[in-house]
Amino acid sequence: MKRAQRPIAFTLNGKRVSLRVHPMTRLLDVLREECGLTGTKEGCGEGECGACTVLVDGQAVNSCLVPVAQVAGAKVVTIEGLKGRHPLQRAFAEHGGAQCGICTPGMIMAAAALGPRPTLGQVRTGLAGNICRCTGYEGIYRAIKKAESRSKKPEARRQETAPTIAPSKARTPNPESRIPKAGTQRAR
């Protein structure tokens, strides 16, 4: 099995990462398990729900259907790459775009791929590959609309989304810290 592994390098949220993995490992598994970026979710493993949506060279893809070997040399951006500061993120949090939250990262990535000021028609078509079972999508449309009105000029927005955080193994989190702190959910 070790023999089947090979080195693969790509850019993840603005940082170069290099790993040894089986080339057919799903990008989703590499992101979540090798890189410790668990914001990308698995809802179905068959490319239907869109919860695992990430951007590869700017295009929205289902990371559950991408063998990691195929992103060698590519630029991958996950929800973590938006650093919590993308106008869509704030709008989803504040305007009913997120309920249970499991579809939210993928939904935001698919929405981010639409570019600035999409029409409702473009939003509905562009998010048709992201299933939400909580909102009936109305809250998501409202959030995207709010994000538009709040977002800066396209250039500024691109800059803001330019990822600079360190991903990856170097920071594989302390397992204990990945569990909610005993007892409390801090008010935010």
């Binding site: 490319g47 869109g50 893809v61 289902n62 259907l65 991408v66 998010l127 048709a128 590959g129």
Partner: peptide, 9 residues
Amino acid sequence: IGAVQIQNR
């Protein structure tokens, strides 16, 4: 066919 994510791949 599919939706955007599938059309991209």
